[in-house]
Design a protein around this nucleic acid. Sequence first.
DNA 1: TCTGGGGTCCTAGGACCC
DNA 2: TCTGGGGTCCTAGGACCC
Length: 394
Amino acid sequence: MKNEPKILHIDMDAFFASVEQAYNPRLKGKPLIVGGRADKQRTVVCAASYEAKALGIDSGMSTQQALRICPNAEFVSADSAKYLYVSDQIAEMLKNYSPQIEQASIDEFYLDITGLDKMFGSYFDLGMRIKQEIKKKFSITGSVGISVNRLMSKIASKLKKPDGMMIMPRADIISVLKDLPIQKIPGIGASLSAKLQDLSIFSFSDMRKFSADFYQQRFGKIGLWMYALAHPEIVVADEEIDWVDQKPKDPKSIGHSYTLNQNIYTRGEIEAWMQLLAEMVGFRLRRHNLEANTVHIYLRKPDMKSISGEKNFKEYNNDSKQIFKRALFLLDKLNTKNVEVRALGISVKNFMPATNNFLLADAQKRYQICNAQDAINKRFGDWTVYPASICSIV
DNA sequence: TCTGGGGTCCTAGGACCC
DNA sequence: TCTGGGGTCCTAGGACCC
C-alpha cells in the first residue's frame, strides 16, 4: 500500500534493571530485583532482570513473593532520577532518526518513520541502527516493532522481546497474530480478558468472530476499539496521530500516595499523612508553575478497596496549606469512622498557569512562605523544611 | 499470600436547568 | 396528582498502562 504510515515502537528491555546492571557491572548476569521502595514489605517488583524473569519473577509481583522464589536475588530500590536521565538521553538520540517522536513512558518511544526507508536503505536497516546505537551508548537493549499504527507496532516489539525486532506490514497482521492470547494485547487487562473469556474469546482469531454491534453492546466504546484492532484489514481513515514534538505537555493531574508500613485507624494519623502529601503535591504544582482547582483524596482499605472524594473548588491555587484544607473538607464528607487505612493519596487536577496574583494580603504572604520553603528544599533536598505538624511522621 | 506509585481515560448516576 | 426529554456538570469508582 502506498504512503501507508509506518510507526516504529521501541521498548527498552527490563529497563530499570538493565540500567542498574549497566551502571554496576557486579549486577550483570545476576537475578536482580528493582523494588518500588527500600523496605521490602508491602511493595511490588518494579523491574526484574532477565535472569530473574527466567526464575519466574516479574514486575508487579509482590517483593516478598519474589524473594521467596529467589532469596539470593540482588535487590536495589528504584532510583527514578537515574532512569529519567537515561530516558532523556535516549529521547535525544532518537530525535536524530525522526523529528516525529512521542515518548509514551519512561522506557517506550514511538517514531513516525513513514518514508524514511529510502534514507536508511530499508525499515529493517533503520530499526537495526537504532538498536545498535542504544546498545553502544547505554549498554542496554531495546526491542523494536514496526507496523502501521502504534498498537500494532507495540504488539510487534513485545513479541520479539528481548533484544528483537519485528516488521509487521498490514497484510501480515492477521496471520502473525492469529494465536495471540488476548491478554497480550495492550489495553486488554485482567478485567476485560476475563469478560472476553466468558464469551469464549481467547485469541486474536476468536476476536474476529464477532460483529461491531456485538462488541459495542457489551463493551461500549472500548468494544468498538476491540473490533477495530481485530480487523486490521479495515483501514481507518487517518489514524489520528498527534505527535508531541519538542516540549513535553503539561500533566493533567499531579498526585502523591503512600502505602503505610502499618495500617492506621485514627483521624489524627490520617490528617498527619494528608498534610505531608499535600506538601508534596503543592511543591510539585509550584515547580510546574501551575495552579489547580480540583482536589481528590483516596483512602485504601486493607481489602484493597478504596473510598475517594473529589471536588471542584472555585478558586485555583498551588498553596500546600489550601490543598490540605480542601483535603480535610473532603475527608469530612467521607465516612471514615472505623475505617482501617492501608494507603492514602491526594491528587490535584484542572490546571491553569500560576498567576501568583493575590487580592488578599494573607494569600500573598502564604505564597511567599511557600516560595521560601521551596527554595530551601530545592537547594538542600526535599524535606529540609516542612510544617512542624508533620514532624511525627517524617 | 500478596498486591507501589505515577498517571490517563471512561462510565454511570444524580443534580440541576430549560 | 402528576410529572417528559434534552443537555450539562459533578463526582465516585473502575480499568488500564509502565
